[in-house]
Computed example of a mutant assay.
Amino acid sequence: MRKLGLIGGMSWLSTRTYYEHINKLVQARAGQRASAPLLIESLDFSDLARLSTAEEWAHAAEVLADIAKRLEAAGATALIIGANSMHKVYDKVAAAVSIPIIHIAECVAARLETNGVKKAALIGTRNVMIESFYRQKLIQRDIELLPPEMQFVETLDRIIYDELLLGKASRQAERELKTILTNLQQDGAQAVVLGCTELEMIVDVDANVLPIYDCTRIHAEAAVDWIMGEH
């Protein structure tokens, strides 16, 4: 098995989810005693949450690029960034190392395309929903994305940062998510992309009004393809 590097801590709950998904998948493919060869550097997310200015994002890119270089030097053969929003600085981080970084949105876009989804909705933090760095990966595969509705953007951003990143999953948040998903179905979405790892805390991925594409699960599957030499 090939060694994978994970840039984590954004949040630590997300890193835990990646670790669990990856190891369960490796176990399913390589046997009950198997576990994934992983290098993890988990950073302090309090310095990188809710970034807004160009200077803040430039700092984030430097922090992640430094981690990527350390993981490469420690023997990682490929990397993943365990946060959707941090893929905004993907290009700068990828340029800092000579090993591949598996892009979460490209994995999700490929899965949507394979399954014949033509029209989808993307939900997550404000920057994932509104900015082009994530959306363009899906649009490049001829997948039409519903335009972000600002009331949903505000609601989701609040739930993610004020509740989920603190480990809270309230019944009220579950109800609000269900309402959003119902509205997206009525607007013509064939599927919904969970563009935030922590959203699976309040969304039943396997039983919903619409097919749910859990970005973390899909990203972890691509990571395991790499680990097993199938990527």
Rank of each mutant, 00 (worst) to 15 (best):
L6D: 01
G9Y: 09
M10Y: 09
S11Q: 10
S11P: 07
W12T: 03
W12I: 07
L13D: 00
Y18R: 08
Y18H: 01
Y19D: 08
Y19E: 03
L25V: 02
L25Y: 10
V26K: 05
A30I: 01
Q32N: 10
R33M: 13
R33E: 07
S35W: 09
A36D: 06
L38V: 08
L39C: 07
L39P: 03
S42E: 15
S42W: 06
L43V: 14
D47G: 12
A49H: 02
L51R: 12
S52M: 06
E55C: 05
E56Y: 10
W57F: 13
W57N: 04
A60Q: 02
E62L: 13
L64P: 04
D66Q: 12
D66V: 00
I67N: 01
K69I: 02
R70I: 08
R70V: 00
R70Y: 09
A73S: 12
G75A: 11
A76C: 12
N84W: 05
V89G: 03
V89M: 05
Y90V: 11
D91H: 04
A94K: 14
C107S: 15
V108M: 02
A109W: 02
R111T: 11
L112H: 07
N115T: 01
N115H: 11
A120D: 00
L122P: 12
I123Y: 04
T125Y: 01
T125Q: 03
I130N: 07
E131Y: 08
F133A: 00
R135K: 13
R135M: 11
K137Q: 15
L138H: 15
R141Y: 07
R141S: 06
I143S: 02
L146E: 04
L146I: 12
L146A: 14
P148H: 03
P148I: 00
M150W: 14
V153E: 08
T155F: 07
L156R: 03
L164I: 05
L165M: 13
L166G: 14
G167C: 06
A173Y: 00
A173P: 02
I180A: 08
L181D: 01
Q185M: 14
G188V: 03
A189E: 01
A191S: 11
G195M: 01
G195C: 09
E198R: 07
L199S: 06
E200N: 14
M201T: 07
D204N: 15
V205A: 12
A207N: 15
N208A: 11
N208I: 04
P211E: 04
P211D: 06
D214S: 12
D214H: 05
C215D: 01
T216S: 15
R217K: 14
I218D: 05
E221R: 08
V224F: 09
M228S: 02
H231G: 14
